[in-house]
Design a protein around this nucleic acid. Structure first.
Lengths: 157, 157
DNA sequence: AACCGGAGCTTGATTGGTCAAGCAAATATC
DNA sequence: GATATTTGCTTGACCAATCAAGCTCCGGTT
């Protein structure tokens, strides 16, 4: 706790304040909006989409639960549950891991791959329309680096 | 992704891609991190903090459920439940609205105000440390405007 | 003045996530 | 090589949010 008792810290400047508020709003609105676009379009909730996406980017369309969870920003148990949902839809199948019998691979099925192909354009369109569009003229790379820093759990200080 | 057959839309540029990914990470990590900082510090989860905050910014420390829900980016029922949690901690009290007997006001109690005073510095510090710090040198006002546009549910197109 | 239609809020059911405990396989230690 | 520890994943209990249905009250019609 950076502020030892007593003195109140410097408040935010108006610009800082509105940035923080706007980010709060975006964090709330954006996932729902993208989700809605996709559900309306190709019935894949964002979490499930992300899982399929990450699987598809792998050479043999399979990944260990641990790794997949990390890439999807999900807890391991959250991942288990997501994969179960996908499995019951036939979009993913689970196989025991050969070199470690404790481990499982989530494997993208052909149906899953097909579904992803269907969903991909509408996801992409939503991301552009809802987000990227508003950052034309910005230095995206610089912005991306700042967000990467902010997304890294522990600031070094 | 793996770009298959037919007329597929233009994929994202690498910079766009990393911005989107980084934003995804931030949206996941940041609320949890701030929440953790605060819980460790002054036991106020972010949602409840936001509610108290908004109440405190009002001239008479009270607000109708509807309005409060909107400001907290919460559904009305979500707001009801949050206020109930706060009420059982004695930080907020509910009063029937005078000019409309259907309505309720959430009212910040003295205890609530005190608790907010305690929490405020650590919240502020967390926001700075976890977020604002990484945007030094940026044009914050411009950035805020872009986020405001992105946070407005329907893009005009 | 009795009646609707709709507004303001709460409640019930469901969802999608978390954390903690459990189980089975792997690895380290003796 | 037997036992203890650790790892990988699942399961159970819980929690905070959502939506849809319900209740109460308002206000305009007639």
């Amino acid at each position: 706790m950076p502020n030892p008792s007593g003195a109140t810290p410097q408040p935010l400047t108006p610009d800082e304040e509105s940035l923080v508020r706007a980010l709060g709003q975006v964090m709330h609105v954006l996932p729902r909006a993208i989700d809605a676009d996709m559900v309306g379009d190709r019935q894949l909730p964002l979490t499930e989409y992300t899982a399929l996406m990450n699987l598809s980017e792998t050479p043999d369309r399979r990944m260990r639960m641990n790794e997949l969870a990390a890439l999807c920003h999900l807890s391991l148990s959250g991942m288990t549950r997501t994969i179960i949902r996908l499995e019951t839809q036939g979009l993913v199948r689970r196989e025991r891991c050969e070199e470690d019998a404790r481990g499982w691979n989530a494997v993208l099925t052909d149906a899953g791959y097909a579904r992803l192909q269907e969903s991909w354009p509408s996801h992409l369109a939503a991301v552009r329309r809802r987000f990227l569009q508003h950052f034309e003229g910005f230095d995206l790379a610089q912005l991306a680096r700042a967000f990467q820093r902010a997304g890294t759990a522990e600031p070094a200080d």
